[in-house]
Nucleic acid binder design. Sequence first.
DNA 1: AATTATAAAATATCAGAAATTATTGAAGGT
DNA 2: ACCTTCAATAATTTCTGATATTTTATAATT
Lengths: 224, 224
Amino acid sequence: MPKMTKAHKTVGTSTYQRIKHDIIFGVLAPGEKLKLEPLKDRYSASLSTLRETLNRLASEGFVDAPEQRGFFVTPVSREDLIEVSNLRVLLECHALELSISNGDTEWEGNLVAAHHKLHLMEQRMLQGDHSEVEAWKRYDWEFHLALIQACNSRNLLSLHALLYDKYLRYQMLVLTNRGETAVREHRAMLDAALARDAAKASEILEAHIRGGLAHTLEAMKEVA
Amino acid sequence: MPKMTKAHKTVGTSTYQRIKHDIIFGVLAPGEKLKLEPLKDRYSASLSTLRETLNRLASEGFVDAPEQRGFFVTPVSREDLIEVSNLRVLLECHALELSISNGDTEWEGNLVAAHHKLHLMEQRMLQGDHSEVEAWKRYDWEFHLALIQACNSRNLLSLHALLYDKYLRYQMLVLTNRGETAVREHRAMLDAALARDAAKASEILEAHIRGGLAHTLEAMKEVA
DNA sequence: AATTATAAAATATCAGAAATTATTGAAGGT
DNA sequence: ACCTTCAATAATTTCTGATATTTTATAATT
């Protein structure tokens, strides 16, 4: 029974995804003014559709929409990155602990699979193949999601998704990674999760996120 | 130096606020279909403006927007209420602890003032004057906000605001309150905060939220 | 340099209409 | 009764174009 995938997306959700993607991956730079006319051509969508999209992104915090002055890509700052990281630690560690105590066999299976796919991609990255950063990050996301999938709270999962994306934008901004350290942490989290050691898994996760934060902050000195 | 208040709100933000208010206070019932034509008259806004508004509310979770099938007020459920409450505990307790350790004199002043105003309103409620539920809830919000105001994280404050509103919708749904218990808890939180006893304040806050949850869940048996 | 006046650009809002999709209800078959 | 099919209707999605208002850019004046 394969999962039904909606064949026909609407123009609205498709432009939403594209613009969000372009913000996260830096195609649209932090602080950049999003003038409506140019965007119309770029994303081949009408003014109304664009405004709907930008309003959605504004409410998620990817776009700034000061009253009567149009739309801007939300700027970045060290303080914001720190806040986002702290919140990600708070939510993701909490979700992880819940997930580890709730997870069933199905969950373990998905987790192992997600880690395997991530690990394959990590090997390629370590060997210097930087051609698929986006795919790599997608596998990273899927692994982190698989870890907390069994937390049993849709609300928690959706807040976490938001924070993951905001955190990701900063990583993409500095385009640097922690190589083998992160790989080891992923492996250690997998092991701790399968061993149902919530405290240990949570501890590693916190170090994992804070390590990425420190790394990104360091690299940001040269950028912003 | 009075705080500058934007004199002319745009039609967009005004309808946004009105619809959000109507969802939280049950004027628009959970699950209700939000047909665009009727809404146009009701809120005197154009179709485009309405769609922008509903998209914003959808991304915050107050509105459901299934692809190609229009808009609905997000339904309520016991599970959702439990999730929202748990998240509110997680975020608000965390913010409270940060706030207590960061708060300065200014913060203490605002806190005392907020509690005083809330308490006046609580007296009226206890005496059976139920004519100003909305004002009462605004003071409740302002007190809880004042408690965590010094947490030093805009991101945390904005996530908390979202959860407070979702929690509030459930309270308004069952229209019941815990009377003197809640009053005592507010007072105890104020005292613990001023005494800089973060652990105690956090403990009371958790009991405060979980108490409200239990109360609302009980009342929901009869409603939903 | 700072301020003010003027022009240009951009936004916010609306109405109307075409295209697409969902819903309804009737008709017919099992 | 129950389910399917099909057409009619309703609603949503999307686009265009027009207008009023506001912001931003430019020029002129003190």
